[in-house]
């Protein structure tokens, strides 16, 4: 589904990603772990199409299409979704309106009929229950005045509504209490399908107790230094990122 090859990314002249290679197949859940500043969020933003990041080398293919050539909205319509680490507050734009515009942009793209306000509300209410969202939030402006937990749950709610093929969760777990964390995890788990893939970016292993990944990658200083199964997350939790970094250096030195 997604192939990232030798991706190099600069932000304001600083090299952040330094040759990242990763393949994600349909049906898989990958977890990207790493210390602060390792480039996790940069990866998420680049995949979603943020233009403040400069790709200097490498390529990204999504379902055979060159993802880097697509505008952010084209990527979204192609089925890429980013759950933002910091969801943006948009005063004056109602959540219901915003989501309907998003859903209809997708439906139009797929050649489906657009939903009117009534049909949309029916469709959305079911999704709200999934992440235990208060319906009142639909009447408020996008993310405005939402608590941290509400914002994060809101991202999962949007993901449920938009039903992407590939979803990136950028530290959706950070700042969540255990109850909210379970709600988020349940939302993601209920969406796991053989034709859908996830990239779960997290700083802590905690989330992975609830969203069990197929693969875990360790990102240090812009490179994946170690990949493994779900047990790698446990090992990281015990030994820390320095261990993963060193073990790869030792391996490199030995060869």
């Amino acid at each position: 589904m997604l192939q990232i090859r030798n991706l190099h990314v600069n932000v304001q002249g600083h090299k952040i990603l330094k040759g990242l290679t990763l393949t994600i197949n349909a049906g898989e859940v990958h977890s990207m772990m790493g210390p602060n500043g390792s480039g996790k969020s940069t990866l998420a933003q680049v995949l979603a199409g943020r233009d403040t990041y400069e790709v200097t080398e490498g390529e990204v293919f999504f379902e055979g299409r060159n993802l880097l050539e697509l505008e952010p909205d084209e990527r979204a319509r192609a089925g890429v979704f980013l759950a933002f680490q910091y969801p943006v507050e948009i005063p004056g734009v109602g959540t219901a309106y915003f989501l309907r515009a998003a859903v209809n942009a997708l439906r139009k793209h797929r050649g489906e009929e657009e939903l009117d306000a009534v049909d949309f509300l029916e469709f959305v209410k079911e999704k709200m229950r999934l992440v235990d969202m208060d319906e009142q939030l639909l009447k408020r402006s996008v993310n405005e005045g939402f608590s941290g937990g509400e914002k994060k749950r809101g991202e999962i709610f949007q993901m449920a509504v938009l039903e992407p093929k590939f979803a990136i969760l950028d530290e959706t777990d950070s700042g969540l209490d255990i109850d909210a964390l379970k709600i988020v995890a349940d939302g993601v788990n209920s969406m796991r399908r053989t034709d859908r893939a996830f990239l779960v970016i997290t700083h802590y292993q905690r989330l992975l107790n609830y969203i069990v990944p197929d693969f875990v990658h360790v990102l240090v200083d812009g490179r994946i230094v170690k990949s493994g199964g779900k047990e790698l997350a446990m090992e990281l939790e015990e030994r820390g990122y320095a261990w993963a970094d060193q073990s790869i250096r030792h391996a490199a030195a030995a060869s």
Binding site: A48, D73, A76, R77, A101, A105, S141
Partner: peptide
């Protein structure tokens, strides 16, 4: 960026923000 990342075109996103 947030609006566009949800599939809303650049023109529509701009108009939406202006109108808001």
């Amino acid at each position: 960026f947030y609006l566009r990342a949800r599939g809303i075109s650049a023109d529509a996103a701009r108009s939406l923000l202006v109108f808001a």
